[in-house]
Amino acid sequence: MSALPRGSTRSGANIRVTGLVKRFRSGGGTIVGADQIDLTVPAGATVAVTGPSGSGKSTLLHLIGAIERADEGRIEVDDIEVTGLSGRRLARYRSGIGFVFQRFHLLPALSALDNVLAPLLPIRTGFDKVERARGLLAEVGLGDRERAQPGQLSGGQQQRVAIARALVGQPRLLLADEPTGNLDSATGDEIMNLLWRLRDEHGMTLLMATHEASLADRCERTVRIHDGRIV
């Protein structure tokens, strides 16, 4: 069972960021990861966030996904003011965002199926969780590897499991942070083709941090960040 029917027309989430600031303490000083960022992403768009290492690409995604909390500014995703959330409302918002990371972050002792299921375990749902997880593994081409542990899978296969896990909560927004950074170029191309297909079929907005120009060129829009600022 797919999270959404094939050919879904759901358009994804709108994003609006205004005056976003995030500072990190480092030694005796302060590093500014986001410096007065303003950004608007329409529903269903694919946007690449580019820039050198340490420029603030990941920080921006982490702030929008509520992994980090902003020091100043405002983040709105659809009608939700993310910067004003706390407690259960914040947890509920996070559960509705799909994350794909460079390092996969799979639990090594769990099977591929259980890794995909993991985000749903604390949530009461009106659907069969196992059926949805199995359907997503089939969508990413791993329907026959559901019992395999991460150590038994290639890097590309692990990233496919991570993508299935990101989609299991039916997100309208998918945040991908260097999704091909740990993969060779051929496998990276396969993963990006998969992401684009799933984006279209599941109806999502895709915001992707990448340093690879070839990936950014596939997006509808590119936003370049340097020293925490959009340039």
Score class of each variant (00 low, 15 high):
Leu136Ile: 02
Leu173Pro: 01
Val77Lys: 00
Glu68Tyr: 05
Gln159Leu: 00
Arg172Ala: 05
Gly169Glu: 08
Gln149Ala: 10
Leu153Cys: 08
Leu173His: 05
Phe99Glu: 08
Leu110Ala: 01
Arg165Ile: 07
Leu90Met: 13
Ser86Gly: 13
Gln159Tyr: 06
Arg134Ala: 06
Val100Glu: 08
Gln158Tyr: 14
Ile123Leu: 15
Arg69Leu: 04
Gln159Phe: 02
Val161Thr: 07
Gly87Glu: 07
Val82Ile: 03
Asp114Arg: 14
Gln159Cys: 04
Glu81Gln: 11
Pro150Leu: 06
Val130Met: 12
Leu107Arg: 01
Glu178Gly: 04
Leu113Thr: 02
Leu174Val: 13
Val161Ser: 08
Asp78Thr: 02
Gly126Phe: 11
Gly151Thr: 08
Arg94Glu: 10
Phe127Pro: 00
Glu76Asp: 07
Arg134Tyr: 12
Leu120Gln: 07
Arg134Gly: 00
Pro119Phe: 15
Val130Asp: 13
Pro171Asn: 12
Arg94Ala: 06
Leu106Tyr: 09
Val168Ile: 15
Ile80Phe: 09
Gln170Leu: 11
Ala91Pro: 03
Val100Asp: 04
Pro108Trp: 10
Gly87Thr: 03
Arg172Trp: 05
Gly155Ala: 00
Ile97Met: 15
Ile80Thr: 11
Ala148Phe: 14
Glu146Val: 06
Gln149Lys: 14
Glu131Leu: 13
Arg132Ser: 04
Ala118Glu: 15
Glu139Lys: 05
Gly87Trp: 11
Leu173Gln: 10
Ala70Met: 03
Asp144Ser: 11
Val116Trp: 05
Glu178Met: 02
Arg69Asp: 00
Leu121Ile: 09
Gly73Lys: 06
Gly126Thr: 07
Ala138Thr: 04
Arg132His: 06
Arg147Asn: 10
Gln158Val: 01
Val168His: 07
Leu173Ile: 10
Gln170Glu: 13
Ile123Gly: 11
Ala148Tyr: 14
Pro108Val: 02
Leu120Arg: 10
Lys129Thr: 02
Gln157Thr: 05
Arg160Thr: 00
Arg103His: 14
